[in-house]
Amino acid sequence: MAVTEARVAARVGATLGEGPVWDAARGCLWFVDIKGKKLHRFNPATAALTSADAPGEIGWALPADNGRLLCGLQSGLHWFDPDTRAFTFWRVVEPALPGNRLNDACTDAQGRVWFGSMDNSESAATGWFYRLDAGQIDRVGPGPVSITNGPAVSPAGDRIYFTDTIGRRIWVAPLHDDGSLGGAQPYLTFTGDEGYPDGSITDAEGNVWVGFFA
């Protein structure tokens, strides 16, 4: 496993920058400023940085095969068109939980989207994990928790990791070919002086990388 030195690629001044995802088709990196309500696009070949104003707090954005990006906002799921830079509302996820917002997401090799919600005040345990598959949204994994993070799928596609930030725990569950899950089990639990586990991702060797905040 190669380890390289981190360096600043672009100075954004984000209030709460999260969710970097590489868009191979466009050769760019998308990421969000949740509290700043912005979707950013960075081109490493030209160092160009562009931004679009989101219609609310935006937790994540994922490139889709229809040429648009699927985005998770406090109000629900939206589509973003990179050409017109316009957001189009698609559907509500948690109509009975207006104090929640969507937070963090990933895809698996079959194109399913795994994402979570959280209490926007970061106190009540009202957050859940969800699977979006062929237009159907189902609640999955551990919960409820105050702040969901991750999720992250193993490179083999046979496991998925869920992060309970306030609970300082990462869970792992077997992921089957049809998208169903086995029972989630504790994978890692962290102590108070280690901080709070935030976003997570897996690499090609199956290692789990986790960002922390104190």
Rank of each mutant, 00 (worst) to 15 (best):
A6K: 14
A6C: 09
R7K: 14
G13M: 02
L16M: 13
E18W: 00
P20S: 07
V21L: 07
A24W: 02
A25K: 12
V32H: 01
K38S: 11
K38R: 15
L39W: 02
H40K: 04
R41G: 03
N43D: 15
N43A: 13
T50F: 01
D53Y: 00
A54S: 14
P55Y: 00
P55D: 12
I58A: 04
I58M: 06
I58K: 04
G59W: 04
W60T: 03
A61W: 03
L62E: 06
A64S: 14
D65W: 01
N66P: 03
L69T: 03
L69C: 12
L70V: 14
G72D: 03
G72V: 07
L73A: 03
W79G: 03
F80N: 02
T84N: 09
R85W: 04
A86L: 13
F87P: 03
F87H: 04
F89A: 13
R91Q: 15
P95Y: 08
A96Y: 01
A96M: 07
G99F: 00
N103D: 07
A105V: 06
A109K: 13
Q110K: 13
Q110E: 14
G111N: 05
G111R: 08
V113K: 03
G116S: 08
M118K: 05
M118V: 05
N120P: 02
G127E: 09
W128Y: 15
A134Q: 15
A134R: 15
G135A: 13
G135K: 10
Q136N: 14
P142Y: 08
G143C: 11
P144V: 06
V145N: 00
V145R: 00
S146Y: 02
G150H: 06
S154N: 12
S154E: 11
R159G: 09
R159L: 14
D164T: 10
G167V: 10
G167N: 12
G167P: 11
R169P: 00
A173P: 12
H176T: 11
D178A: 08
S180M: 10
S180F: 02
G182I: 10
G183P: 01
G183W: 04
F190M: 09
E194I: 13
G195F: 05
G195S: 11
D198F: 08
G199S: 15
E205I: 00
G206M: 08
G206Y: 01
V208Y: 05
V208T: 11
G211Q: 04
A214F: 10
A214P: 07
